[in-house]
Structures are given as structure tokens and as C-alpha cells.
Design a protein around this nucleic acid. Structure first.
Length: 302
DNA sequence: AAATTCATCAACCGCGATACA
DNA sequence: CTGTATCGCGGTTGATGAATT
């Protein structure tokens, strides 16, 4: 079925030829796209506007980044996906020069498999229930990455709080709601979403206005598979908790004669630079700003 | 060497949201 | 308010080349 915009035209489909690319680039470089539905006619292309738009956005745009996704980009995709789910366009906004299509393809062809191989559900990022079952019933079968010597190869070795506490993924309320997603506008009369300095970052909440601070002190937030008062998530306390958890895992591993390389990948994290999220996730402030806006926009829609 | 399977990713499709007449 | 056009998004398909049998 052809699109509304090109119902009456004869329309070419399939891969674009270099000649077609050249026509589209020349036209848009000179005139801009304006209305995509009129681009094919004006550019002399037998394509529908939708196809032109897609080709430009995903392939011809001059600001696109070429080459494979880097490890850093991969990590960003995974971390943001954990929060936003399959919102590819939103995720791509955090990766300059990458398109939603590229992110989606990379997710489906690469990241998904890696997560599954690590026993994680790619949708929820929680432990797969059958994987959890295996963990409990097979002594030396596959172990999560922090148990293994060969494993920590990928970027997905964030020590997941569910792994540590052994909470079954079926017990989890997935997806986790990350703390900074709670949209709090310190000024209720403000038409704008909260900015990072107003945002309930654990690091800075002491500097929030009284209203926000009161909220933070009374509200609960999901952490380690359950709800805890937010006060317990202050960095010093959380760091101490992490240390205890590391020691616990280390001694458990030692007791079954395993080399102990358990560690939080975030243990050398600089608390001064970023904000703390549940599940051992850390973001820099600009990501949080973006997430705050995204979250706020989503809330507004509902 | 040929056939088959697998992986990748560009492109398409349909749908919901938005703009506009 | 209603209908139509367009845009943008996420899910899916299918062509292509690589890997395996």
C-alpha cells in the first residue's frame, strides 16, 4: 500500500541508488526539506516523501556518525534502555550522530543477545527467571558475570542489586523506576520541568527548597528490589552498603573455593561528579537533565 | 564447491499524534 | 467538531553477504 503523500505517483521502492542519493542530497542541501511530501517531485525522485525522509535521516544527513557503535555508546544504550525501554528515538538523542534505527538495529542484533547470555531479560534488565532457577539448582553452571573469571568482557557487568540479594526476577516490579525520573517541580507554578539544580538528586537534595526536601525525606524509592526511604540512599550510606555487599559476596565465593573478583564496577565512582541511581547506575548530570525532561514530557502527556 | 543457515541493517509498514482547513 | 495530510516512531521484513554444513 502506498502512502497518502504518494498515492498518485509511481513510486520506486527498495534500496537507494547513488544517483538517487545525489539528487536528494543536492536538493535538501540547497532548499531544505520543507514538506517531505513535496520533496520527491521537486528533487526529481520517483520515491514517496516518507522514503526520502527516512533516507535522509538515517543515511544521508551530514551530521551522522559513521562506523560501528563504540563501547561507550553501547553502555549508554543499555543504561538508558533500562530506564526508558524501547524508546529508540529518545535513546538516540543521547548519542550524537546516531539514529533511532541504528540504535534499534544494534540492540536487536547485538545487545539483546549479550544480555540474554548474561542471564538478563533484555526487556526488564532483571535476571531471567529460568536463569535464576539454574543458579539455584546447578552448582557450577553458568554464573552471573561477577561470579566468573572468564566473563566480565562486556559492558554489562554492572553488579545488579537483584543478583546480589538473590531476589527472583519474578518478585521484581519491573521496570524499576529510577529515582531521578520522579518529576518534582520545586515551584508548582512554574510551567517548566525541573532543571538539574532543582532536581531531586541525592547529592544535592540537602540544598533543595524545604518543600522538595520534605518530599524526599518522606517518599520512598525503589532500591534493591524493594522500597526504601530515600534517606537511606545518601551516598555515604550507599557506599557503605555496597562495601558490605562486596564483602559478603567475596566471602561466599571464597567459601566455595572460587577466586574472588566480585566488585562493583562503580566502586571507584566519583560522587562529586554525578548522581546516584538505584541499581548501581550512575549518570552524569546532562543525562539526568535529558531524562528529567523526557520524564516530565511523558507525565504531561498522560 | 554448492547449499543452507545466520546475522546485519536499510527500508518499509502501520499507527498515533499533530497540524490545518 | 470533523476529516485529511503529514510527521515521527517502533515493529517488522527482506536483501545481502558471511559463516557454516
Amino acid at each position: 500500500m502506498s502512502h497518502q503523500c504518494c498515492r498518485k505517483q509511481k513510486v520506486k521502492r527498495g534500496l537507494w541508488s547513488p544517483e538517487e542519493d545525489e539528487k536528494l542530497i543536492r536538493f535538501i542541501t540547497i532548499h531544505g526539506h520543507g514538506s517531505w511530501s513535496s520533496v520527491p517531485n521537486l528533487a526529481g525522485l520517483e520515491r514517496c516523501g516518507k522514503s526520502c525522509r527516512l533516507r535522509w535521516i538515517n543515511y544521508l544527513r551530514p551530521d551522522l556518525k559513521r562506523g560501528s557503535i563504540t563501547e561507550k555508546e553501547e553502555r549508554i544504550i543499555v543504561d538508558i534502555h533500562r530506564i526508558l525501554g524501547n524508546r529508540w528515538a529518545q535513546i538516540a538523542k543521547h548519542l550524537p550522530g546516531r539514529t533511532d534505527n541504528e540504535v534499534k538495529n544494534f540492540w536487536n542484533s547485538c545487545i539483546k543477545k549479550k544480555l540474554i547470555a548474561q542471564g538478563l531479560d533484555p526487556n526488564t534488565h532483571n535476571l531471567l527467571s529460568d536463569y535464576n532457577y539454574k543458579l539455584n539448582h546447578e552448582n557450577n553452571a553458568c554464573k552471573p558475570s561477577y561470579h566468573s573469571h572468564q566473563q566480565p568482557t562486556s559492558t554489562f557487568t554492572v553488579v545488579n542489586s537483584q543478583m546480589i540479594s538473590g531476589i527472583s526476577s519474578t518478585d521484581m516490579k519491573a521496570p524499576l523506576i529510577p529515582f531521578p525520573m520522579i518529576p518534582l517541580a520545586p515551584d508548582n507554578n512554574s510551567p517548566y520541568p525541573p532543571l538539574s539544580h532543582e532536581f531531586p538528586s541525592i547529592l544535592t537534595y540537602e540544598y533543595q527548597n524545604p518543600k522538595t526536601k520534605a518530599f524526599l525525606e518522606n517518599e520512598s524509592c525503589m532500591w534493591a528490589g524493594g522500597y526504601e526511604p530515600i534517606q537511606s540512599m545518601i551516598p555515604e550510606k550507599r557506599q557503605a552498603e555496597q562495601q558490605l555487599e562486596i564483602e559478603k559476596i567475596t566471602s561466599e565465593l571464597a567459601s566455595v573455593g572460587q577466586n574472588t573478583d566480585a566488585s562493583f564496577e562503580t566502586s571507584n565512582f566519583d560522587f562529586a561528579e554525578s548522581s546516584l541511581l538505584p541499581c548501581g547506575m550512575y549518570y552524569n548530570q546532562s543525562s539526568i537533565d535529558q531524562l528529567a525532561w523526557d520524564s516530565w514530557a511523558l507525565q504531561e502527556k498522560k
